[in-house]
C-alpha cells in the first residue's frame, strides 16, 4: 500500500448522550479517492469536522502525514496539509472572487503578517490565484463580489479555494450539492484531475452513485456514526448495507 497520509483511530464525539461519530478507525493513502457514504445524519460532516479540527474529539486520535494532530487548532491542521471544502458554502462574502482565492494562496505562502507592503504588489499571488480561477472557469468573474455569484459559481469558488490551498489531504463535502447538471461536471472533472495527480488523498462525501462509481477507489459507509463497511466500490455497493441505506431503509440491524 502507498503512504498513509491521514489516519483516524477510534475517533469519537458525543453530543450530550448522542454519539455522532463512534470509534471510527480508518487510514487514507496517497493516490486514493475514498467516497464516504451514508444516510443523512450518519455523521459524515461531523467526521470531517473532527478531522479538520472544527469540533474537538471526545476520544481517539487523528494523525496527518504520520504526525498526531489531535491537539492542533484548525489553522495548524491546515498548515500541516489538510484542506477542506465545506458542505454549506463558506466564503468571504463581501470580497471579490479573486481576493477569496488570493487570500488562500497568501496564507499558504505565509505572507499574512506582512504589514507594510501593498497586497497588490505581490503579483505572484495574484497570478497563481488567476490560474486556479481558470481551472474552475471563474476567471471571467474575478472582480465580482461573492454575493453576486450564482449558487453554482459559489460552489465552484469553494472548490477553487481548496485547490489554491494545495493540501496533501483533500476533503470534499458534497461538492456538487445544489449545482445544475451542466455545472457539476466542471467540479467533478477537477476532482478527477486531482485524483490523476496521484500524490494526494481525497475524501469525498457524495450521494450520487454514478459519481462514486466513476471516481472512487474505495468506499466507506458510515451509519449512526460508526464505520459500517469499508472496501472496494463494487463490493461495498453490492453489499446489503449500502443496498438498504440507499433504498431508504433504516439500518437497525447492522
Amino acid at each position: 500500500m502507498s503512504q498513509t497520509l491521514l489516519e483516524t483511530k477510534d475517533l469519537t464525539v458525543r453530543f450530550g448522550g448522542h454519539v455522532a461519530v463512534d470509534a471510527v478507525s480508518c487510514a487514507f493513502h496517497a493516490g486514493e479517492l475514498t467516497a464516504i457514504v451514508g444516510p443523512n445524519g450518519a455523521g459524515k460532516t461531523t467526521y470531517f469536522n473532527l478531522i479538520s479540527g472544527q469540533i474537538p474529539a471526545s476520544a481517539g486520535s487523528v494523525s496527518l502525514l504520520g504526525e498526531e494532530v489531535t491537539k492542533f487548532s484548525v489553522a495548524q491542521r491546515c498548515r500541516a496539509g489538510l484542506g477542506r471544502a465545506f458542505q454549506l458554502t463558506n466564503l468571504f462574502p463581501n470580497l471579490s472572487v479573486l481576493e477569496n482565492v488570493r487570500l488562500v494562496i497568501q496564507a499558504h505562502r505565509n505572507k499574512g503578517f506582512s504589514l507594510l507592503s501593498m497586497a497588490d504588489s505581490h503579483h505572484e499571488l495574484t497570478v497563481e490565484a488567476r490560474a486556479v480561477l481558470e481551472r474552475v472557469r471563474l476567471d471571467t468573474m474575478e472582480d465580482q463580489k461573492v454575493t453576486e455569484l450564482s449558487h453554482g459559481n459559489q460552489r465552484k469558488l469553494e472548490v477553487a479555494m481548496l485547490i489554491a490551498l494545495d493540501p496533501m489531504v483533500y476533503m470534499f463535502d458534497e461538492p456538487t450539492a445544489g449545482m445544475s447538471a451542466d455545472e457539476a461536471p466542471v467540479v467533478l472533472d477537477l476532482i478527477a484531475e486531482l485524483k490523476a495527480e496521484r500524490e494526494r488523498t481525497i475524501l469525498l462525501v457524495e450521494h450520487k452513485m454514478d459519481v462514486i462509481r466513476a471516481l472512487a477507489d474505495r468506499i466507506i459507509v458510515l451509519h449512526n456514526g460508526a464505520l459500517a463497511a469499508d472496501g472496494d466500490p463494487a463490493e461495498v455497493m453490492a453489499s446489503d448495507v449500502v443496498q438498504e441505506a440507499y433504498m431508504g431503509k433504516a439500518l437497525e440491524n447492522v
Binding site: 463558506n90 488570493r102 499574512g112 506582512s114 501593498m118
Partner: peptide, 28 residues
C-alpha cells in the same frame, strides 16, 4: 498602508468569515 497590506486583507477576511479564515490557515 496597513489596511492595504496582505495583513489588512487577512483582517477583512476575518471580519467577513473568521471560521473560514481559520480553515485556510490563518490563526485568527
Amino acid at each position: 498602508r496597513v489596511v492595504n497590506s496582505p495583513f489588512g486583507r487577512v483582517l477583512q477576511a476575518i471580519r467577513e468569515n473568521d471560521f473560514r479564515a481559520e480553515a485556510v490557515g490563518y490563526r485568527v
